[in-house]
Amino acid sequence: MSAALDTLVFPPAMAGEAVSGDPAEAAVLRAIQGVDAGLVVYRVAADRVGAALVFAPEVPLAKAMVMLPLCQVGFQNALGALAPPEVAVHLEWSGGVRVNGAGCGRFRAFASGDDAEAVPDWLVIGWEMPLWPPNEETGETPDQTALYVEGCADVDPGQLVEAWARHTLNWIARWEDEGAGPLHGEWRGLAHGVGEDVDVDGVSGTFLGLDESFGMLVRHGEETTLIPLTRNLEESP
């Protein structure tokens, strides 16, 4: 059985806060109010689970956005440790999560501003994942799935939130100590759609991979276009 929400345990550098609404939007509100970095806002419901982490970047937004793929990798590591070994978890550059090839939740990014060269006051990275499909007619949306219909019925959603926080904190420490290299390599091995045709932000072509700042490289004919990671920012609610 799932642990009570108020018993979720987070690393010393983090604090938890349960909410009944969208965790990412709630985290943005708390960030605007000036909450300390390290707050994990989360929701564990009967059909969905999600969480969001508040950051206080010390680098310009263009570099701080590395926290989006970093949090994705932390999530993949967390779910990979809790799910059966045959369950495949991959990551989309634009924030989507793929479980056994089908879309299953997504990550979102918010910041206090959109100037790539300015240090933002705060940055919020959040995610949400369906535990059960919205209806029983799953054949109507074959490209979308839910965690519990992909062999993960024994994954405790509260433990998933806790594990995500721990793995994400570990990756933050590695990023601070070793730079983006290890993270870049880890994400590349988990990336969905490399080598395939994509249409992102009005740019169509072949997804070649990432540059050193995790920007998306798209080849169209003889031209290669770089789409910066900041294009994944959403407007604050």
Rank of each mutant, 00 (worst) to 15 (best):
M1N: 03
L8F: 10
D22M: 07
P23S: 12
V28E: 03
V28K: 03
Q33A: 14
A37V: 03
L39H: 07
V40T: 06
V41S: 13
R43H: 13
R43C: 09
A46I: 00
R48V: 11
R48A: 09
G50H: 05
A52R: 04
P57H: 05
P57A: 07
P60I: 06
L61I: 00
M65L: 15
M65H: 02
V66Q: 04
P69D: 05
Q72L: 10
A78Q: 13
A81I: 03
E86H: 04
H90Q: 15
L91A: 11
E92K: 15
W93R: 02
W93G: 01
S94L: 11
G96V: 02
G96Q: 08
V97D: 06
G103D: 10
C104H: 07
G105M: 06
R108L: 14
A116Q: 11
V124I: 06
W127P: 08
M129D: 07
P130H: 05
W132P: 02
P134Y: 09
E137K: 15
G139K: 07
G139M: 09
D143S: 12
L147M: 11
L147R: 01
G151P: 05
P157C: 05
P157M: 04
G158P: 09
G158T: 04
Q159F: 02
L160C: 12
A163S: 14
R166F: 09
R166G: 00
T168C: 10
L169W: 05
L169C: 11
I172N: 00
A173N: 12
R174E: 11
E176R: 14
G181D: 15
R188G: 01
G195N: 07
D197L: 11
V198F: 03
V198E: 09
D199T: 06
V200Q: 14
V200I: 12
V200C: 14
L208P: 04
M216W: 10
V218H: 02
E223V: 13
L226I: 11
L226C: 12
I227Y: 11
P228A: 06
L229G: 08
R231Y: 14
E235G: 10
S236P: 00
P237N: 02
